[in-house]
Amino acid sequence: MKVLSVVGARPQFVKCAPVSRELRKVHEEVLVHTGQHYDYLLSEVFFRDLGIPAPDHHLEVGSGSHGVQTGRMLAAIEEVIAKEEPEIVLVYGDTNSTLAGALAAAKMHVPVAHVEAGLRSFDRRMPEEVNRVLTDHCSDLLFCPTATAVGNLAAEGVTAGVHLTGDVMVDALRENLPLARERSTALADFGLSPKGYYLATVHRAGNTDDPAALRAIMEAFSRLDGPVVFPVHPRTQKKLAGYGIVPAANVRVVEPLPYFDMLALLSGARAVLTDSGGVQKEAYILEVPCVTLRENTEWVETIEDGWNVLVGADADRIVAEAERAGGARRQHSARFGDGHAAARIAAIIAEYEP
């Protein structure tokens, strides 16, 4: 089949790598990069390190409000679909690129396949939650990473085309962790010892657009009993400067890291502090305690198994849970699959008949 794959943000590049490799064994893939993430360290370096083929179409949409960005993507993807005439459009995750790809395809009567379908935080204030729900309800093939995701869709009346494939992030981590440990010198470069530091990421609007929340998070980092490696998203960096927030001496502010360096640092951290959905899941898979700087999560499995705890932007809670290394660890399971999700996705697409 001719599959048009739409990506645009850093987490999607990681998920795309194993799926694209499997797709191209059987199908013709046309890769579209919307340009939602366009900074070199958030985009191009991932294509290089993960061996992702160069995009066939780079839309260069760039940043903007949700409406402006999604609208530009929708118009541009529509043109690509008209030109390429794919038999199916494949989208990933929960970004504006995801929704724009799904809507453009659905309106042009091209079947939509959604990788990472069925996730729910049940918080419609999050743009990602709106993107997930809308994308799922206009998808024809829904590739669920967990049984929880399948249940979420069933509760909304979505059962046709639903497949429990496992999570492609397990595929990516199994393939890339040995490479990261072999190639990355990040721990040595930062003078860190395994389990002797924290890793932090903050990028969600609920934290970055609220000066009080961002200030509380940075205060918590300053109180931790060890160095905090803090790769800062360009948008977060602007907010810190705009609010006049100066990170403490123990907080090592660095540019966004290449994938192998980030993976090496994550696997070696005492705990990770994040508001990223993907990092929560990566931490679980790597058996690293996680402290989530939100009041909800779409990855409830990480909470249920005791590897993750929700603390919001409360400085005291952040410090207490981080120094407990994420709370009491109870169990670790193969909830996210066996590392063969990408092959299942390619096979299901091959068998699909609209």
Score class of each variant (00 low, 15 high):
134 L>Q: 11
111 P>N: 05
117 A>R: 01
105 A>Y: 05
133 V>W: 03
115 V>I: 15
114 H>Y: 02
128 E>R: 01
162 V>A: 10
97 S>N: 03
121 S>C: 14
105 A>N: 06
101 G>K: 06
129 E>V: 06
157 G>Q: 10
122 F>D: 00
147 A>L: 15
166 G>C: 11
117 A>Y: 02
160 A>W: 06
145 P>H: 08
138 C>G: 04
137 H>M: 13
136 D>A: 05
152 N>Y: 05
154 A>D: 06
124 R>K: 13
171 D>Q: 02
166 G>R: 03
156 E>V: 07
127 P>F: 01
172 A>F: 13
119 L>Q: 13
158 V>Q: 01
168 V>C: 00
107 K>C: 10
103 L>N: 07
101 G>I: 09
149 A>D: 14
145 P>T: 08
104 A>E: 01
132 R>Y: 11
134 L>K: 10
160 A>Y: 06
144 C>Q: 08
120 R>V: 01
156 E>C: 13
122 F>E: 00
126 M>A: 10
138 C>M: 15
160 A>G: 11
128 E>L: 03
153 L>H: 07
109 H>T: 07
145 P>W: 08
174 R>H: 12
153 L>Y: 09
142 L>H: 12
106 A>L: 06
132 R>G: 12
158 V>L: 15
170 V>T: 05
129 E>T: 07
129 E>A: 05
153 L>A: 11
129 E>M: 07
114 H>V: 00
127 P>T: 00
133 V>G: 09
166 G>K: 04
153 L>Q: 06
161 G>H: 02
125 R>N: 14
137 H>L: 13
114 H>D: 00
136 D>G: 12
106 A>D: 06
161 G>F: 03
139 S>A: 14
121 S>V: 04
175 E>Y: 02
98 T>K: 11
108 M>K: 15
171 D>G: 02
128 E>H: 04
110 V>C: 08
102 A>L: 12
158 V>F: 02
170 V>I: 11
120 R>G: 01
150 V>I: 14
174 R>S: 04
98 T>V: 12
175 E>W: 02
121 S>T: 15
163 H>C: 02
113 A>V: 03
98 T>L: 09
103 L>M: 15
167 D>C: 04
150 V>C: 15
152 N>C: 10
131 N>A: 06
118 G>C: 02
157 G>F: 08
141 L>T: 10
148 T>D: 14
142 L>W: 09
128 E>P: 13
151 G>C: 04
135 T>W: 08
165 T>N: 09
140 D>M: 05
